[in-house]
Simulated scan of single mutants.
Amino acid sequence: MSKVLGFAAIAEVATGLALLAIPSLVGQLLLGQQLAGVAIPVARVTGIALIALGIACGLATPLMGMFAYSSAVTLYLAYLGSTGEFAGALLWPAAMVHAFLSILLGRALLTTAASSK
Score class of each variant (00 low, 15 high):
M1S: 15
S2D: 15
E12G: 00
E12V: 11
V13M: 02
V13G: 03
A14D: 07
L17G: 09
L17R: 08
A18P: 02
A18M: 06
I22Q: 09
S24K: 01
S24M: 07
L25A: 14
L25T: 11
V26D: 01
V26H: 02
G27F: 09
L29Y: 08
L31S: 12
L31H: 11
G32N: 07
G32Q: 09
Q33V: 13
Q33T: 08
A39S: 12
R44D: 11
A52M: 05
I55P: 04
A56C: 06
L59P: 09
P62A: 05
L63P: 10
G65M: 04
M66Q: 09
A68I: 09
Y69F: 15
V73K: 01
L75A: 14
L75M: 14
Y76C: 10
L77H: 02
Y79I: 10
L80H: 14
G81W: 15
G81H: 13
T83K: 08
T83G: 04
G84I: 11
G84P: 03
E85G: 06
F86L: 13
A87Y: 12
G88K: 04
A89S: 13
A89E: 15
L91D: 00
L91S: 02
W92Q: 00
M96P: 00
V97D: 03
A99K: 06
F100I: 09
L101S: 07
S102P: 00
S102R: 02
L104F: 05
L104I: 06
L105I: 03
G106S: 00
A108F: 00
A108C: 02
L110S: 04
T111M: 01
T112N: 03
A113P: 02
